[in-house]
Write a protein that binds this DNA or RNA. Structure first.
Lengths: 194, 194
DNA sequence: GCTAGACTATGACGATCGTTATAGCCAGAG
DNA sequence: CTCTGGCTATAACGATCGTCATAGTCTAGC
């Protein structure tokens, strides 16, 4: 078998991202990630010789890129459409997992690093947030927003959506997403108008 | 010794809240919480016979009430002052911990619950978020905001601040807080004006 | 067909987890 | 003084953790 329908390595990364988004990094064991991807434990150390940190780093980048792709595509129709897609994407993840899944990037971002050291997974999380913000900010600027305003609004959107997903999980309801959605839509409309 | 300067029980809860805000719930062991509070391991099971879940629940409520107190007090000077205090409080926690600490309520909120069951700590997190939102929404309404708008803005503020704290930790910078602060201030000004 | 190298199978290592049990201490009430 | 009850001390339980080592299987290219 040269290549199975989805290669083992990618299945492991995608599965790891899903599990991390639910339980957090430290509560997700390598054994469970392997089992979830129907891969043997030995394979995880074959594909990711640096161990858990490497796997976490790749999982963060994987979901980061996945979201960025969607964002990039929908932003072609303008910032408001991009925001709507961004919100819909997270609503779907939260709702379809029965409020069990969230954002793996956030989950990794709030793990405490060892003193005076920055683990690669945490650095990857920072990069992913930055990328999402830049996509939104560029689109806002392209539609007439002032540079500083665009940056501020982009950061607010990313932060608010991440926080709202957490609120939804705690309350087992998508209502927080509805509320922030309404306000963020006003905000975008006001931002690209001046 | 009838009562030490700070009672053991409260020291354990406060310490647990701090540790959970840094490492997350599942990465924080009861042994470490006891050691951090200079209390014996046996004492934690004496004060919290339901074990880790109970300790986590009380830690969430403890920090929830602590933030709510500050919020309640500063909101007396109006929504804008309340928001400023809310932001300053989190900025202080993030900065003074060298970007290691965050919000323990968020940390508990994103832990996956067992299927069809809601652990008390998760329910407590939902309550705390609700309480913060209500404090902000009431203040907004008292200053002329429409009821629905007030609720939406309050949810957005709580979610955005929680998310921004996570962004700051990942990026090891307080700049995200500056950006969201600016936008949330505009938003409050616009909300209580109509 | 054979060999090299990618992948898997299996088991073990020390460490730490949540939790419990049991015995001991030690202040304050009687 | 004795005794009771809140708190501590200590050790242990099985389970699971991240990681590593070793031997085995299988396939692609010669």
């Amino acid at each position: 078998m040269a290549k199975s329908s989805t290669p083992s390595r990618e299945r492991i990364v995608a599965g790891a991202a899903d599990m991390i988004s639910r339980r957090g990094l430290s509560a997700t064991s390598i054994r469970e990630m392997a089992k979830h991807a129907k891969a043997p434990l030995g394979s995880t150390y074959h594909y990711f010789p640096e161990g858990k940190q490497q796997l976490a780093t790749e999982a963060v980048r994987y979901s980061g890129e996945w979201v960025a792709r969607s964002l990039r595509k929908e932003l072609e129709a303008g910032p408001a459409a991009g925001l709507a897609a961004f919100l819909a994407l997270w609503r779907r993840i939260v709702f379809e997992s029965d409020f069990h899944a969230g954002c793996p990037v956030l989950a990794v971002a709030i793990e405490e690093p060892p003193a005076d050291e920055v683990p690669p997974a945490l650095a990857a999380a920072a990069d992913v947030f930055e990328q999402w913000e830049n996509l939104l900010a560029d689109s806002l600027r392209a539609h007439g927003a002032r540079a500083e305003q665009a940056a501020q609004v982009a950061t607010l959107i990313v932060a608010a959506v991440e926080g709202t997903v957490a609120l939804c999980r705690a309350k087992r309801s998508t209502e927080p997403l509805d509320r922030t959605a309404a306000q963020l839509q006003y905000l975008i409309a006001a931002t690209i108008k001046n």
